[in-house]
Design a protein around this nucleic acid. Sequence first.
DNA 1: TAGATTGTTAATCGATTAACAATC
DNA 2: TAGATTGTTAATCGATTAACAATC
Lengths: 204, 204
Amino acid sequence: MQKPISLKTFNRLVDMLTIIEQSPPEQQTFSSNELARNLGVSDILVRKDLNSIGISGRPKIGFSRQDLVTNLEHVLGYSGHNEAIIVGCGRLGRSLLDFHLLDSLGISLVAGFDLTPSTIGRLEVLPVTKMSSLIRRMRIKLALVSVPENVAQTVTDQLIEAGIKVIWNFTATPLIVPEDIHVHQDDLRRSVAHIQQHLDSEES
Amino acid sequence: MQKPISLKTFNRLVDMLTIIEQSPPEQQTFSSNELARNLGVSDILVRKDLNSIGISGRPKIGFSRQDLVTNLEHVLGYSGHNEAIIVGCGRLGRSLLDFHLLDSLGISLVAGFDLTPSTIGRLEVLPVTKMSSLIRRMRIKLALVSVPENVAQTVTDQLIEAGIKVIWNFTATPLIVPEDIHVHQDDLRRSVAHIQQHLDSEES
DNA sequence: TAGATTGTTAATCGATTAACAATC
DNA sequence: TAGATTGTTAATCGATTAACAATC
């Protein structure tokens, strides 16, 4: 009966894994204090977070690298490799397709879909008419959506109908989906708003 | 003596503006309930958020579109247009350069920098040696950083030295900066982690 | 007026921190 | 042992919600 971890804790755990991966490989232990400094939070919070997913440290020593990496990767689901498709291959879609960072994080795009077929890099862009059958045939569960705003909901409905379970939405349109489907909203707009606010305060 | 708005409120305000912009232009008023449903939060919270930035509604009527748009744009800093540069024009950098969504959100990239000069679309990629002087000459305040992890901190130091005040960090390296510099961390890794977790739970 | 919707004050809930005991 | 670091329990803080009064 583990209680679910909060979004804030989850995000900090992702950041901790990043910090550890970027540390020199010979460093075998990390104190909560060291992680806390890098994260910009308190050491108590780091210990709480780690304890909550079953990682415990040793007094006077800290947390072992091995332990941290194994557990964090497990909890964060980094072990698996997932196939995905992308719908809408305009400018944004093309950027994402060409975006090998996704690869390195364990997501591989197997096909793109658009009204007009083409090829981008080594990836085929197929006509939307073939979308549903490919999703079914390859049992794809993840779709990136970067279509024009006015068709976002229609495309979403088709994706779900075909068996997609997780949607990464790069449009600004809030998508309406059934309970069991998860939408991850890209927050470029939020990012830009934050940045602009800081720039504004800079000028004044 | 306005008290500063919280990050969560800020994010909801961004989303509210998006919802309003996407609604049919003839819709002149919005009830807190309607906005709340679209945001997936309670109506009370929507009113609290709006009140906190000085927007008030009218009982039985709701909030006026005009009022919402004007105030939200002002608070969120959408009015201005900001120039930025990008350092590191590898795959990720190129995607960002070609990413006209940034334009539409009020950020225009004026130049890219890399070890080897080139041209991407209509944008010049200049050698890094010219970076500092251009930042000074054009009084650029915002830089997007998408360099290899191992030079991220060095590049950051140069940027700050040249007068950059806000850094949008697309590397995973946590950047160390003075108090008065703001770093906005891109959270692609967090996004991917969230998505993978949902995919994992789907499989079980 | 009656009904709908806003705004405010108090209550609740969850996340963070403080204090301190436990342990290597 | 003494010192450093973890882990736990209680206190604090902030954000959300509930209840209800105000108003068009």
